[in-house]
Structure formats: structure tokens, C-alpha cells
Design a protein around this nucleic acid. Structure first.
Length: 504
RNA sequence: GCCCCCAUCGUCUAGCGGUCCAGGACGCCGCCCUUUCAAGGCGGUAGCACGGGUUCGAACCCCGUUGGGGGCACCA
């Protein structure tokens, strides 16, 4: 419970990620995790993962498990923390209460902290009485309470909170991303470390654990910047009583903004990390985009791998500007990574998404795998996220193809469609060789040359008949994979949908 | 209200006093390719918030203004 010199090797960097397991995982939180991880890896340092579950009312075990899963999915491995262990455990604050109780007692004993009996209502009343804005907060009125006064409050049944005595000096630090930041002496009131009921608060346990775990560099959101003076003061007190080895460095990352000009809130659907996973963003695509929220690898480049990020990451080059989360750009980045995937890798990753819809089994049958591998290169380049495969290649794995109503309206509504579909069926029924080139030749001869149709008019209805959509992988290859029987069946089925025609 | 942060194309950014009549990416718009849709190729659109300094010289340094944002709990 004292500063462990071995925990902070001179010059070595130790960063941490310390979310609280309360509900949905926010993309900004994962961005913070990524930057801490990249900073540790780049400097050859350590990355600690700690769970801040001091709020029993809001924390959940499910959320805790989910957090681990998200980190692992992104590829952010930790050197110390849950399920990994380490010399500074436990790594869940709910299991560290004795530690906080002990540190609080020592702070009180050393005079850095004191018992405070004022209720929030009393503080407000005093501010008002003095003609001041209640927003100024606590007025440090209990600093000089005598033992008699304290006894009197206790006799009333009041339980005191523990407050830190703030120093009467300026509090300043050299922020890793912003340079010097300074708060004037007296501008930050004495704050609460421990509640009246004995439960320690976040502003207390967070620095205590950072100190005990040898954290040297704290990278966190700019929204926490105003709380830094308090942490600094606490750190100085902890250093004085031998709990901390000194102050860590702080770096305040730019906020992640939403649609308007506001911080992306947990309420905003865009902020939910899970939706990107579920849509089939790649971890490497997500890492790439998240990294771009405040950092850039080079002047003329924005596609890179996690490894490349680690090699190049320099926290001093992180931008201080707030960054808007741009789904369009995230998609573009992801699409680039998706297309770069080797076919086998792509197939592996896409299978769970197809399986989820019952289109293939997981693992796929040999036949399903064969078809997937054949169509993959053609599908990959027209996909943005893995779940796109469901709509794009699903028609190859089911006989219950739903024809998109809009597609039908566009391609299967006129008399031309009937003529085209009939001609296509005729051309394909006795085709000697069922290969993409043969199919291409037959259809072009029949539809383009024979009927005199423009290619786009000739193949539109056929595509919709085969795939149910106006967008699909290349037609001939798709038909080849589908097989003659199913292809003819779909042409016939579509033929029956054409209104007001003989076949209907 | 108080404290703090931020300020280059619509968006994310490069730029760390001259090499910038500002570069890249996303988006958007054309053109090419073409069996749809994409992808790809080519081209285009659009920005240093304003005002003072400092300097031979400022997007870059300083001050102010304006604008935007964040924080002000016995939540985290």
C-alpha cells in the first residue's frame, strides 16, 4: 500500500484503461483505450486494465464481461488486469475497499483531509446569504471545526464526509496534448473523498489506484480536464504520506462529437460501440478510424494497420481539437480494410454473419465454402461491412429469395421484362456448358443481339430475377454458382411476377 | 454566472516563421471504364473566424474580440 518503486521503472511508461461497467460501451471510451494502449506499446511500456465499479447501483456483471470482450475484439491486450492478473491486484475497485479505507484514514491523520458536516442545502444557503452564486460550490467552511463542534454534529446524528484540503497555490501541469494548463489558487473547493456512509468516491479512488498501480501517463477525455487540479492536489497529498511516487503526466484527448456540436452522448445511437461490431466493422477498420479521431499518421495517408499505428504513435502529436464522429468516413476506412482481406480470411469473417441469418451453417459445408470462395473476391469489393454479405450474396444460399419490391417495380414491371426473361430462359435451357463465359456469350447473343436491347435494359430484369436486387455480384458468375436448375427456376418465378403478361 | 479548453475546406486533418496564391482523406459534383450497383482511374468543388501587434516575412508567435465546446454532485 505504499509506492512501489518497481512499478514505475525510471523512464518507463505505464498507461491504463479504467472504465466503469455501466451499460453501453461508448466509442469515445474505446478511443481512449486505444490511445492509452498505443502509447504504452509504442514506448515499450505497460498497459493496465482496471474496472471502476464503485457504484453498485449502476454497475453490472454483464457490462463488465462485455467490456473485456470489446477490448479483446479490438485487439487491445493488457499486461495487468482482469483475467490476466498482475502485481497490483485486485483490478476491480469493488474488491479494493480496505485499501481505500486505509488511505483515507492516513490522509485524515496527516491533516490532508478533514471531516465535513455541511449538507449541500446549508452550503447553498450560505452562498446565497453571502450574495454569491451557489454554483461556486462548497465553501470550505468546515476546515476549522473544533472537536466540540464535530461532537455536536455527531450528536445530531450527522455522518461527516471526508474532504481533501486544497492547497492555496496555483495548480498547473504540462498537458501531453495541450501544453501548460493552469488553475488559479482557490478556484477549486475542497472536494469529497469519502461519502458519509463510508463509500469512497471516484475522484478519490481513481488517483489512489493510479498511484498504487504505478501509472505514469493518464490519457483521458477532455471532459475530465476540469477535475485535474483536484487530482493533482490529491496526488501531492498521497505523495506526502508515501502512497504515491509523485504526479503522473496527463494528456487530455479531444472530445468525440456527435451530429450537432455536442459531445457524443451515451444516448446517441452513434455512440454505441456494439452497433459497429454487429454491422460487421473489422477490428482493424475500427482501430484505424478511432485513431483518426485526434491523431494522424502522415500528411498524405490515412489507411494503416494497428501495428503501423503503434510504430508511429506519438501522444505529443495528438490534436487538441474536438473531432466529430463521421460514420461515412468510418465506413470508407472499413471498406478499404475489407477489400484488402485475403479471400480465406474474408470468408472466415463473413461466415458468422451469414450463419446468423441461417444462410450457411457454421462452420459451412464444403459446398457452401466452395461457393463462398468463388464469389468472395467479387463480393468483397462491393461491401462496406461484413453484414452487407447477407443482402449481397445471400441469394446463393437459399431458395427463398425475396424480390425487393423497389427492384421489382423498376425491372419487372413492363412488357419488356417478360420478353427479356423468356429469351434468357430459352438461351440458357440447353446451354451445353454451364460456365460464366458461356452464359455471358449466350445472354449477349440472345438479349443484346437478338432482342436489340441495350445491355443495361437487358440485364436489369435478369439480375433482379436471380438475386432479388438491383445490386449483386457480377451476373454471369452468380449464375454459374447458382447452377442451371435454380437459375431457370428463378427466371420462371420472376416471369410470373411480371404483371399483365401471358405468364402471369 | 464562474473556471477551463478549442479555432485551417461541409467533416477529419497536414502545416510546428519563408519551400503554402495551404497538402491528404471522407463527402459532394463531373468524366472514363462498364452487364446493374459498387470498386477503380482522372478531374473538380471548398478552408487559414476577425482585429491588433511582433518580424524583412505569419495559417504558424503574442494580445484582444467573436464563435464553439466542456466542467462546475456525498455520479463516474
Amino acid at each position: 500500500m505504499t509506492a512501489d518503486p518497481a512499478a514505475t521503472p525510471s523512464g518507463g511508461v505505464t498507461t491504463r484503461f479504467c472504465p466503469s461497467p455501466t451499460g453501453l460501451v461508448h466509442v469515445g471510451v474505446m478511443r481512449a483505450a486505444l490511445f492509452n494502449w498505443a502509447h504504452a506499446r509504442h514506448t515499450g511500456g505497460r498497459f493496465v486494465f482496471r474496472i471502476e465499479d464503485t457504484d453498485a447501483a449502476r454497475d453490472s456483471e454483464e457490462s463488465y464481461r462485455h467490456l473485456l470482450d470489446c477490448l479483446r475484439w479490438l485487439g487491445l491486450d493488457w499486461d495487468e488486469g482482469p483475467e490476466v492478473g498482475g502485481p497490483h491486484g485486485p483490478y476491480r475497485q469493488s474488491e479494493r475497499h480496505e485499501i481505500y479505507r486505509d488511505v483515507a484514514a492516513r490522509l485524515l491523520e496527516a491533516g490532508h483531509a478533514y471531516e465535513s458536516f455541511s449538507t449541500p442545502e446549508e452550503v447553498t444557503a450560505r452562498r446565497l446569504a453571502a450574495g454569491q452564486d451557489p454554483k461556486l460550490g462548497y465553501d470550505n467552511a468546515d476546515r476549522l471545526l473544533t472537536e466540540e463542534q464535530k461532537a455536536a454534529f455527531r450528536a445530531e446524528g450527522r455522518a461527516p464526509v471526508l474532504r481533501l484540503r486544497m492547497p492555496d497555490t496555483d495548480l498547473a501541469w504540462d498537458d501531453l496534448v495541450r501544453g501548460e494548463v493552469r488553475f488559479a489558487a482557490g478556484s477549486v473547493p475542497d472536494f469529497v473523498l469519502v461519502r458519509g456512509n463510508g463509500v469512497p468516491l471516484y475522484p478519490f479512488v481513481n488517483p489512489v489506484d493510479d498511484a498504487l498501480m504505478g501509472i505514469t501517463d493518464v490519457l483521458r477525455g477532455e471532459d475530465l480536464l476540469p477535475s485535474t487540479p483536484r487530482q493533482l492536489a490529491l496526488y501531492d497529498a498521497l505523495t506526502d504520506i508515501g502512497v504515491a511516487p509523485g504526479r503522473p503526466r496527463f494528456g487530455h484527448l479531444p472530445l468525440v462529437m456527435g451530429e450537432g456540436n455536442k459531445k457524443l452522448s451515451k444516448r446517441d445511437p452513434q455512440s454505441n460501440f456494439d452497433v459497429y461490431r454487429e454491422r460487421g466493422f473489422l477490428p482493424e477498420g475500427m482501430v484505424n478510424y478511432l485513431a483518426l479521431l485526434g491523431w494522424s499518421i502522415a500528411e498524405d495517408r490515412d489507411i494503416f494497420s494497428p501495428e503501423e499505428m503503434v510504430a508511429a504513435f506519438d501522444v505529443r502529436r495528438v490534436s487538441p481539437n474536438p473531432a466529430r464522429f463521421d460514420v461515412k468516413k468510418a465506413e470508407a476506412i472499413n471498406a478499404t480494410h475489407l477489400r484488402a482481406l485475403p479471400v480465406e480470411d474474408f470468408v472466415e469473417r463473413v461466415v458468422p454473419f451469414l450463419a446468423r441469418e441461417g444462410l450457411v451453417s457454421d462452420p459451412p459445408t464444403d459446398e457452401q465454402r466452395r461457393v463462398l470462395e468463388a464469389i468472395a473476391p467479387l463480393a468483397q469489393e462491393r461491401m462496406i461491412v461484413l453484414s452487407d454479405a447477407v443482402g449481397l450474396v445471400g441469394f446463393l444460399f437459399t431458395d427463398e429469395v425475396e424480390i425487393d419490391p423497389a427492384a421489382a417495380e423498376k425491372q419487372l414491371s413492363g412488357p419488356d421484362a417478360a420478353e427479356v426473361l423468356d429469351a434468357a430462359s430459352a438461351a440458357l435451357t440447353d446451354l451445353p456448358e454451364w460456365t460464366a463465359p458461356a452464359i455471358e456469350t449466350a445472354l449477349k447473343e440472345s438479349l443484346v443481339d437478338g432482342l436489340g436491347r441495350k445491355p443495361r435494359q437487358a440485364f436489369g430484369p435478369v439480375r433482379v430475377a436471380i438475386s432479388g436486387r438491383t445490386v449483386s455480384p457480377p451476373l454471369y458468375e452468380s449464375m454459374e454458382q447458382l447452377g442451371r436448375e435454380r437459375t431457370l427456376a428463378r427466371l420462371a418465378a420472376a416471369r410470373r411476377l411480371v404483371p399483365g403478361s401471358a405468364g402471369g
